[in-house]
Simulated scan of single mutants.
Amino acid sequence: MADIRGYMDDSTTTALNLTFLMTLGMAFLMFLGHLAVFTAILLLAGAGRVLALILTAARVGCRKNSR
């Protein structure tokens, strides 16, 4: 059976592992950031839709009362 202790002490292997793990970490953080932005955009769109409905209903109500 091969002894893997010699490979674990290699600084190149350690650097490559750290680079890979940091890349995965950054990808995960970017995913969370995109998820937060997408959620915020959906919330803003929903709030705008509700505001438009309220303003439209108020305008129609004012029109009915003026006749």
Rank of each mutant, 00 (worst) to 15 (best):
I41S: 08
G46Q: 02
H34S: 04
R49P: 00
T19Y: 09
A40F: 08
A58N: 04
A2I: 10
A27M: 13
G6W: 01
S11N: 02
L43D: 01
F38Q: 13
G33W: 04
V37L: 09
L44D: 09
L18T: 12
L35H: 04
A15D: 14
T12Y: 13
A45K: 04
S66N: 03
I4W: 07
T12A: 15
M8S: 12
L53W: 05
R67L: 09
V37P: 00
H34A: 08
L24G: 13
F38S: 15
D3C: 03
L44F: 12
A47R: 12
R59C: 09
F31P: 01
I41V: 14
C62A: 15
T14N: 10
R63H: 10
G61V: 02
G33V: 02
R59K: 13
G6H: 08
T19P: 00
A58R: 05
G25I: 01
T13A: 14
Y7M: 12
L18Y: 08
R49M: 11
K64Q: 12
M26K: 10
R67T: 06
K64A: 13
I4P: 12
G61Y: 06
A58C: 07
F38L: 10
M1I: 03
G33P: 00
A52M: 08
A58K: 01
A45Q: 05
